[in-house]
Design a protein around this nucleic acid. Structure first.
Ligand SMILES: [Mn+2]
Ligand SMILES: [Mn+2]
Ligand SMILES: [Zn+2]
Ligand SMILES: [Zn+2]
Lengths: 144, 144
DNA sequence: AATCTAATTTATAATAATTATAAATAAAGA
DNA sequence: TCTTTATTTATAATTATTATAAATTAGATT
């Protein structure tokens, strides 16, 4: 999700209508590396469109998921789904204290992997999450 | 979680009381590689103790989690936590069709890793999940 | 520009996993 | 056996997400 216009074009090509709500959600997501949850997006959106509903946020996120424009991230110890507009395969760091998610810049690894076979399984996706403490929280917790 | 008696001893040492309910849940978990959810355990348990409550299952699982005797696994596209009595670090294969979780036998990898540093994060745990289709489901879906 | 129709939005209810509560019960120690 | 405190149970509460259905609207058609 880098380019809004391409995204809109693709959505329209797939038969989706472009509403002001969707356009605004797109804007929030483009170049967003914060891995927001639905409600984070809703809160930003409300400032710009006070009458928007949370259901529309979920609708739009599900639409983008189907279009393959965003990924969903499930976490242990955090019960809301986090969304990621970077769909290129990459790993995540999750801070158990502040709940931030940070991308891991991968050095070489099998990045462009799409389908692989392990133990007879046909793999379509891999999720790697490192749980720990970010530098900031680490310092805070050290002092306490 | 291999040995029930050691588990009971450890639980008692930590101040927990050993009830028939807990003893029975322990039995269900020992040497169980099916990665059950709370309700799976509850269903097995009900046959042996018809008056047991689901709350007790959750209580006991949380207790075992605190004791470090089991792990919890969060999954994308599956909204209940799966429990794993094998706490030694290992990866998982998740079948998107039948929801089975299978352990990945690791060849060499950095298995005994406990704490590591990545991007300034202090890592305490890593979760690796491969999403795909198990051999059985693969065949079924191929025919369809 | 006015009309049409199916998709979308909205408010709201439903769902589902898990946790909280509080009274009844029971484990373990004295 | 008695006592204390943890545990169990039934049930309510919580929370993220999905479903529903009436009102609205995007985008195509006239
Ligand atoms: Mn990411
Ligand atoms: Mn496992
Ligand atoms: Zn942090
Ligand atoms: Zn399967």
């Amino acid at each position: 999700m880098q380019n809004i216009d391409e995204l809109i074009e693709e959505a329209q090509k797939q038969g989706y209508k472009i509403t002001p709500q969707r356009r605004e959600i797109f804007k929030i997501l483009v170049n967003n590396d914060s891995h927001p949850k639905a409600e984070d997006i809703y809160n930003i959106l409300k400032d710009r469109m006070p009458d928007v509903s949370l259901a529309t946020v979920y609708n739009t996120l599900n639409m983008l998921k189907e279009l393959g424009m965003i990924d969903a991230i499930a976490l242990f110890e955090d019960d809301s789904v986090r969304y990621d507009p970077t769909t290129k395969a990459h790993d995540h760091l999750y801070c158990l204290h502040c709940n931030r998610i940070v991308d891991v810049e991968k050095d070489q690894d099998d990045l462009g992997f799409t389908e692989k076979e392990i133990s007879g399984f046909q793999i379509v996706k891999r999720q790697v999450t490192y749980y720990g403490y970010c530098p900031e929280c680490r310092d805070i917790l050290k002092t306490t």
